[in-house]
Write a protein that binds this DNA or RNA. Sequence first.
RNA 1: CUCCUUAUCGCUUAACUGGAUAAAGCAGUCCCCUCCUAAGGGAUAGCUCAAGGUUCGAGUCCUUGUGGGGAGACCA
Length: 535
Amino acid sequence: MKERVSALLREKLGRELVLEKPRDRSFGHFATPIAFSLAKELRKSPMIIADELAASFGESEEFSSVEAVKGYLNFRLSENFLSEYASWALENPSEYAKQEKNQKILLEFVSANPTGPLHIGHARGAIYGDTLYRLAKHLGYEIDAEYYINDAGNQIDLLGLSIQLHARENLLDETVEYPESYYRGEYLDGLSRDAMEKFGVEIFHDESRQRELAMWAKDEVMKIIVKDLADTNVHFDTFVYESTLYDDWDRVMQKMATTDAGAIYEKDGKTWIASEAKDDEKDRVVVREDGRPTYLAGDIVYHNQKFERGYEHYINIWGADHHGYIPRVKAAIEYLGYDSSKLEVLLSQMVSLLKDGEPYKMSKRAGNVILMSDIVEEIGADALRYIFASKKSDTALEFDLSEFKKQDSSNPIFYIQYAHARIQTLLSKSTLSSEEIMCADLKNLGDNADTLLFDAMLLPEVVEDAFNSRQVQKLPDYLKALAASLHKFYYDVRMIGTPDEAKLLKVMLVVALSLKTGLSLMGIVAKDKMVKEEI
RNA sequence: CUCCUUAUCGCUUAACUGGAUAAAGCAGUCCCCUCCUAAGGGAUAGCUCAAGGUUCGAGUCCUUGUGGGGAGACCA
């Protein structure tokens, strides 16, 4: 909708312009401050320019009025325009708010180590990523969601050791001494028992079989992780295993050397990448003296592999603590001969939880972390998704669990669902057939219904804006505001049994469509009926 | 010490990326079961960390300072 108006005005005025929604709807549907920017070059007062521009519009199909107010140019869309758009959307619900972007994007997120279930910190990245994914898909991008599994390196050995120790203590009643760092948590119970069945107890005492145990366990842990994700409606298309990448190391090193002979060099018996020359703080080790590659080596091969797969754009969602890691990866990409600006790294900040205003107590049995599955159990996947999607991802987040358990207006997810359910109830109470409703002409709606209709049809802009700015929270914000408009309208205007029933219900259909589409983009299924649970 | 990031009502967050009177929810005070579910609707009070700068116009951009968070590994 905004697209069309914007294109129309560009044509009319012959220049780019900022089109915005006025804060106060009485000013019209859209507005532009263009007169201010023209003031300087035309050497005229903005007010006069705006007046002249407004006058130049005259009668038009799309606008019912064009007014100049204090230098702003305000547009009011015609009923025809709105009505046609609404009918189109209702007849093509699956096309609504869709576009054809035709860009291939690879989105990598979560990528948590396969050493334990996902905790609450991962949840934020997971939901942020999955929501971006849904938005992009809807906008027509060819986007793939990828999980990078770090199944090589020390943490995997540590997993093997942790299971051994856990099993010896809990299954075999031995007294064991734990090293400084090891994994703990309830999930080790299951893993220990399964391991005992599969390998026999000997494996818990045999240090040389630690690796064997770990390689089995990480796959088991991945099953837990995938289930955690599925329970939150988070979807992945592809999984890449770090352990499979190192075979390619020699070739990738060669590739970097071809681009720049100085990219990789040997010093002190180690192999280094000359990342300092590419804006990193210093050069980094990629292969240690004993020949073991560092984590960075794996990432270099991984990113080479990504770029060889030929996407046009790459998005990585990392935790904020990986911030300093960006320059060295970008340096490697440059040495590989690719454009590092194609890689976009989004950082998701830390999360801290409150419950009844107090910091949320972490379960001892879970080993000092808050599991994502615990939260899902506590407040439900919908609420969790809503919370994480509704905050800017680049600020540290603090939220109170108990607030999301309440079933009233303080809980935004219920508030939005209730709006959708109310509309469904109206439709079921109405004696009109859906054909009769669809045929209704949206004329003379009155200001309230007109405003509501317009608000409902803003979804496409919101979706595009949310994705382009990578600010997913714009969607829940919009849905909440739309739900509020609906509730107010519902309270003010009676619809069933009035002469305007058909056209008002048609407006309701548009609102419901936007709510449902918006919710589904957040991975939440719209409810047709609210059932109040007794607590 | 260096770099990055952040700062908005009492609390959690918005603000169309430089635009009109800074907006929601919670918490507070007060009202409304009138007919489509009160899981709702209203009323009221309250905010841009500090000091400069850029310009028609700044919460948004620049400088300095202050307070949070993060990074400164041959850990991942």
